[in-house]
Amino acid sequence: MDVVVRPARPQEWDRAGELVAAAYLADGALQPGDPYLAHLRDAAGRARDSVVLVAAEADALLGTVTWCPAPSSHREVAAPDEGEFRSLGVDPSAQGRGIGRLLIEACVQRARQERYAAVAISSAQWMEAAHRLYERMGFTRLPERDWAPRPDVPLLAYRLDLCQDPSGEVQIRDAVQDDEPLVTRMLLEAVNWLPERAGLSHAQILDNPGLAHYVSGWKRPSDLGVVAVQDSRPIGAAWLRYFSAGDPGYGFVDEGIPELSIGVVPERRNRGVGQALLRRLLARAGTRGIPAVCLSVERANPAQRLYVAEGFHTVQSFEAADTMLLRLDESPLPT
């Protein structure tokens, strides 16, 4: 069952507050009796002028974050043209599923919809796993806004610039059964990434078993994908598919690790669309409990820089291409 991020219902405020407090305690960020726990538990108080969001799987709450638009009294570091989120926490039993990333993406989407120029946050100095997650998602340090609510709690400020992210005008949706022609077309774009090189035709790709098995029989129950849409026109797609050792993909690592494919129409490349697709797909993969994602990329392909920036690392090298892997089971810490 998919995880959905939505505003918490009033009857869920107490559960959301207890969840984020439990996350801070389980991680060791706070000790029992710390006065800040009362603030974390008061989700109802935050909901008076902010939006308490929850990541829900059916009736189970897996995580929560508070979105603080102006003029919320809970904003701490955001300028008037910036959004802010606080009190991010994931249930300890759900960590490693990408729930934190999904909650952050929901806040970033709200910031875009509300026309903020950026998202600014602050995070405790010792929350290093959370900092790595923010940096992978494009946040950068903002040391001039570092502060401390008390001497023993130094907070580091981070900012995500939305004005320089052209993917803000692009909508990302889940891929569906009827998207088989689209993912096939995006496989064509991925294979023919270098304009100067004679490309394969649609028919040639489907006649090549080593390429056709990336899309044939779409959408299998285990397939997972997302589509980028601009002005009602699909402009890109990213998807995951499992392969067997007997019929491996080019980036095959293990039968339990799906392989990534991603394609963007030429006129929208190098404008943030691929990054937006990748981040949304990885968030979806985490909610399914997928432990890692693999891929194959030619070393001359500029997309390799994106994969490295998002945390992929090379596990095997060939003459002109690398097999890369990203583990998704590193649990993000609360902020």
Rank of each mutant, 00 (worst) to 15 (best):
M1S: 14
V4A: 12
V5P: 02
R9C: 01
R9T: 08
R9I: 02
W13Y: 15
W13F: 15
V20H: 11
Y24W: 11
Y24A: 00
A26S: 13
A29L: 09
L30F: 15
Q31L: 11
P32T: 00
G33F: 04
R48P: 07
D49C: 12
V51K: 02
V52G: 14
V54R: 07
A58I: 02
A58L: 11
C68K: 03
P71C: 07
R75W: 13
E82W: 07
A94Q: 01
G98A: 10
L103P: 06
I104R: 14
E105K: 09
V108R: 13
R110K: 11
E114V: 01
A117T: 04
Q125G: 02
R132G: 08
P151E: 14
L155D: 04
L160I: 11
D161C: 13
Q164T: 15
Q171M: 10
A175F: 05
A175W: 01
Q177F: 11
D178V: 08
D179S: 06
R185Q: 15
A190N: 07
L200F: 11
L200D: 12
H202R: 15
D207P: 00
N208V: 03
P209M: 05
Y214D: 00
G225F: 00
V226P: 03
V227G: 02
D231G: 07
W239I: 09
W239P: 06
R241Q: 02
A245G: 11
V253F: 01
R271G: 04
R280L: 13
L281F: 06
L281E: 00
R284L: 02
G286W: 01
T287M: 06
R288N: 06
R288W: 10
P291T: 08
A292G: 08
C294R: 05
V297K: 06
E298S: 11
R299D: 06
A300I: 06
L306G: 07
Y307C: 01
Q316D: 10
S317A: 15
A320V: 14
L325D: 13
L328R: 08
L328I: 05
S331L: 09
P332W: 07
L333I: 01
P334F: 08
